[in-house]
Design a protein around this nucleic acid. Structure first.
Lengths: 150, 150
DNA sequence: GGTGTTACGTTGGTGACTCCAACGTTGGCG
DNA sequence: CGCCAACGTTGGAGTCACCAACGTAACACC
């Protein structure tokens, strides 16, 4: 018959780490599905959005701002550049660096993906009231702030 | 100099999906480091804890309860069985099934890993008060409950 | 009582995300 | 000049999650 509730790992279901993991996993799945329509992934959006909002930056800087490893930035920027969403140019002031800039098409795509993100977000947070959403973001922000200032 | 704050993806830093992802990522990293001392991973703990708390079960049942794919359960149970933490026996009542049971050593390991989990959890939730922790788990539980009964 | 459907365990593979080690190049500093 | 740090790049690893397919076994239905 294969009944039984799908999710309920005994005593785990009350632990914050489990809940965080499951929630994030669910969010990531929704987001991944949403981004798939753009034929891009999470890394691409983070980079594109950062470029569109904060302007051109070096790859190392992008990695730092997006929380992506330098080596992973290379591949993602390769993808984006291959689609003309981004331009890679050597920095005349520092020949070690590449200056990455979003093209107009890149900025457009960033906007479209941003809209997708908001749709997913609304779906994800549907069961929570506005106050609760604010509560959640506040708690998580505190959590992260504490652990990044280690 | 390579200065600049490590984490702050522009407008992303206020989105729930980003915060969830980062928090969970951080939690997973802490947990992974903690479990590494046992030379086991998250899958192993989920299975072992479920077995220790709920008693023997078939692999498919375990997968369902732990949110792990059947095919991934196979490998994890192989690992656990190889260490004598778990026993795999054919179910006489249904020859399709294997009945998985935790050995005494397995139950011990589950307890030890549980202790590790609690340590990590305390570390993770350090910046939050007891009330806030309860708030967080409540919000996340609501979130998950809503999306699993979809 | 045969037939089709379903569940089971297993194998093998894919993809996203995160991280690490190493190399050659370039810039900055003492 | 010599040393060290940062840069981009390559290559690899590991965890988690998911999917497709197979053969076997149980079950439901006619």
């Amino acid at each position: 018959m294969d009944n039984a509730a799908p999710q309920s790992p005994a005593g785990l279901s009350t632990t914050a780490t489990w809940l965080l993991n499951q929630s994030a996993s669910h969010a990531a799945r929704l987001l991944s599905e949403g981004f798939a329509a753009h034929d891009l992934r999470g890394y691409h959006y983070r980079l594109l959005a950062t470029l569109a909002e904060d302007g051109p930056a070096s790859q190392a800087d992008l990695g730092r701002r997006c929380g992506i490893d330098r080596s992973d930035v290379v591949a993602a920027i390769n993808d984006l550049a291959g689609r003309g969403l981004v331009v890679r140019a050597p920095d005349p002031a520092d020949r070690r660096r590449n200056v990455i800039s979003a093209t107009d098409a890149g900025a457009d795509e960033a906007r479209r993906m941003g809209a997708t993100l908001e749709r997913v977000q609304a779906d994800l947070l549907a069961p929570l009231s506005a106050t609760e959403r604010e509560q959640l973001t506040r708690l998580l922000t505190r959590l992260l702030r504490h652990h990044s200032g280690h």
